[in-house]
Write a protein that binds this DNA or RNA. Sequence first.
DNA 1: CTGAAAGCGCTTACAG
DNA 2: CTGAAAGCGCTTACAG
Lengths: 340, 340
Amino acid sequence: MTIKDIARRSGYAVGTVSRVLNGHPDVSDEARERILAVVRETGFQPNGNARHLKQRGSRDIAVIVKGAGNLLFARILEETQARIKAADKTAAVYYLDEEDNEVEQAIRVTRELKPLGIVFLGGNKGNFLGAFDQVKCPCVLVSTRGDELGFPNLSSVSTDDVTGSERAMGFLLDAGHRRVGVIGGESAVVSPELQCNTSQLRLAGCMQACTRRGVPFDPVRQTAQVRYSMEGGYQGANELLDQDPEITALFAMADVMAIGALRAIRDRGLRVPEDVSLVGYDGIEQGSYTVPRLATIRQGADRLARRGVEILLNQIEGPAAAVHEIVPFQLVEGESVRSI
Amino acid sequence: MTIKDIARRSGYAVGTVSRVLNGHPDVSDEARERILAVVRETGFQPNGNARHLKQRGSRDIAVIVKGAGNLLFARILEETQARIKAADKTAAVYYLDEEDNEVEQAIRVTRELKPLGIVFLGGNKGNFLGAFDQVKCPCVLVSTRGDELGFPNLSSVSTDDVTGSERAMGFLLDAGHRRVGVIGGESAVVSPELQCNTSQLRLAGCMQACTRRGVPFDPVRQTAQVRYSMEGGYQGANELLDQDPEITALFAMADVMAIGALRAIRDRGLRVPEDVSLVGYDGIEQGSYTVPRLATIRQGADRLARRGVEILLNQIEGPAAAVHEIVPFQLVEGESVRSI
DNA sequence: CTGAAAGCGCTTACAG
DNA sequence: CTGAAAGCGCTTACAG
């Protein structure tokens, strides 16, 4: 079943059928009705490949999500889709694995879907530096900063990782904890010029919290570098507690890791927060269902989504300069930290 | 940058470029090298729309996943992708929302991607009955039964929901529990002929477990119908405990609901398993990180994936009759049930 | 308002 | 082994 069949059955030419299908105004009511009737009765749906091959000016906004299992992104995505729909555009969502290159995907999408704009949920700066200049449409990077990238068509909305992390760590320090372990991803040693990835930024926040309070912090001994997963958190907690059994608190750079850490602490016969206090990061739903409820830094998922879409739509309307926005986070005290 | 540009730059015709790009054998080594060199230096990637518009005989297998947030599916998907890759095919994954119609998607995909076959991760029988006869390629439905559907090109691999659920409920009954609440999805009253959805099958299992042990079960009073989510589980547990505070055990038809129930029980000042025992279903990773660890029915995710792909590949090779396979489940005792 | 025709970027018989 | 050409199913100026 193609547009040709619809044309034959309705007695109109394919061009007219196409116009009806795309809601063009310059068609007679009679033609519209007759064609739509045929479409309905045949259940015809146009071939997207053919359509995109030629079409310019779609109403699509592509959303590229890095990590189908990322619960924070899942939450942001939901709101992003709703906002896009509310703006009378259609969202085309592409899920990528953690390791996939989102910019390559974006390049493919610009060629094949020709979207009005692209929302990136998560992204790796290295990938952008490599090839982002090949994508010309307005884009917005949600949840990680994009200002240093310096692309005129790339805006960003994010939480301040350094400050958020400083707050989390500060929460522990201010509760009297001095021996604190940090579970995060790869961050090597932090150098001020090269604060690339999220783990590095959050580690910088930890150090800042310590420095400001005159508490020593040894990134080598007090840090475990693991994957952002429950299992990673489990391993990280064990590693740190093995190394220093006197640790009284752990900060996990993501709630999923904190959930793993919670279990690891229990498996060592210790309790949260009586023996070990625990803070996570992100504020995913999951963290409010654990026993005890997780203390965490809640990123404003809805606000990230809303501003991301607003900024993007704005850029699509009339090309403006890229904007880089920081949205506030919130410390959730939960039940997993105790004062000592 | 199109195939035409590559043709011009390499000095060959577009047809030859196309053959090289698609790995056809009938090209001279010289042509292949020169063309590949140009492709490499330009970073050219063919337009998928144009490619799919004409191409027959792709090496793609489509995977349609219902529910991006379904952790069981996430696990199955991972293995499914690996198996497809191992068979030297490429997996094209489509994520759908819970409410989206997977069969409509399949119809679109068959037209636009022309895949060798389709794997459905989850599916609604109603959707299949409606329109599945429009998809002609071999398909396999993973995690829900497809035998009663009776399509010659639709195989299935699943866990026996009735028996699995009977086992979960039996575990509680055999531990001495008599007042057991069941948290599930919509299931109305079970009628033997119309056991359509998963909730109904699992409810049937519960009733079977009771019947066989001579324990009365009142589906109206002992059942809460909620969404398959943590929040749903939270509400369901509260509903049941409000109605009958003497309940000593809960069975949640999915681990995500059990996680919500766990929190609800705690919020009522009760403990698992001392005051209320709890069993889930699915065996997602999450359930082994809760405190206490969840008792559950573990579905064999890897095996579901492996057999699903094997069966599909087999159908693709030489068309055979549809097969409907049941893979075993496993009771995980966890730490959330106590004997009374 | 409608039709006829060109063209999107590929693939694929068909010749040679 | 390679090229020229038809065609996949649409959209979109261009006439009328």
